[in-house]
Amino acid sequence: MIPAPFDYVAAQSPEHALELLAEHGDDAKLLAGGHSLLPMMKLRLATPAVLIDIGRLSELAGITADDGELVIGATTRHADLAAAELARSQAPLLAHAAALVGDPQIRHRGTIGGSLSHADPAADLPMALLALGGRVELTGPDGVRTVSADDFFVGFFETVLRPQEMLTAVRVARKPGVPWGYQKFVRRANDWAIVGVAAVDGRVALANMGSRPLRATAAEQAMADGASAAEAAELAAEGTSPGEDIHADREYRAHLARVLTRRALEHQR
């Protein structure tokens, strides 16, 4: 399968990428790892006129720590995030999520910025960022704005990113030693979660239980009120609206959300 024709520009710097976005607007798409965009283009579900390649911009890649936060550049590859000692010690849930994306080849190409911008409700990193209460930095013609994960994902493959904006960095609070739980239920190799649960520090996030990654707010509230993990997990599917597909119907997904939430809360690392 061959994508429809498009023009290709390799951005020379983040500023150049922003200029190109401003110039081409809605006709253009950023290309990071290409592991969501190219499959869609091959199926002609996406037919951008211009691709702006940011995949080799080293300025946008890398992991650093400032006072309280870990800062991850947008083009940091999943494999690098999974292996980075800094991420594994300061935000182990995020490093673990990156290690579970697809398979090794996919992790060698896909980037955190691409995954979050793509906003697949079944994906690992959006759920992990939501559980961690992280933030994203969006850079546009008017400068940088910082948006919390709670506000970033707004619908099915939809975020608050504007056409002329680029996600430039991801910020999560450093939580060394804080217990966390992660459950990803899959049936096939290198697949997305049928349902996923990430839990840390009183927050519980769900993958594939609605059109965007969701918080299990009823379960969180119950825990805050002193409920046991098992009691709180019974409430995990409240307020969710999972879809149905060949793997699971709604009822089964709700069941998985409850069981996986209990496991994520009881088997913490």
Partner: peptide, 18 residues
């Protein structure tokens, strides 16, 4: 690609430049 495994059906030739 630069010594790590990738699936070449999901990489554009132009992405391999350099």
């Amino acid at each position: 690609l630069n010594d790590v495994s990738v699936k070449s059906c999901t990489v554009l030739a132009v992405q391999a430049a350099g």
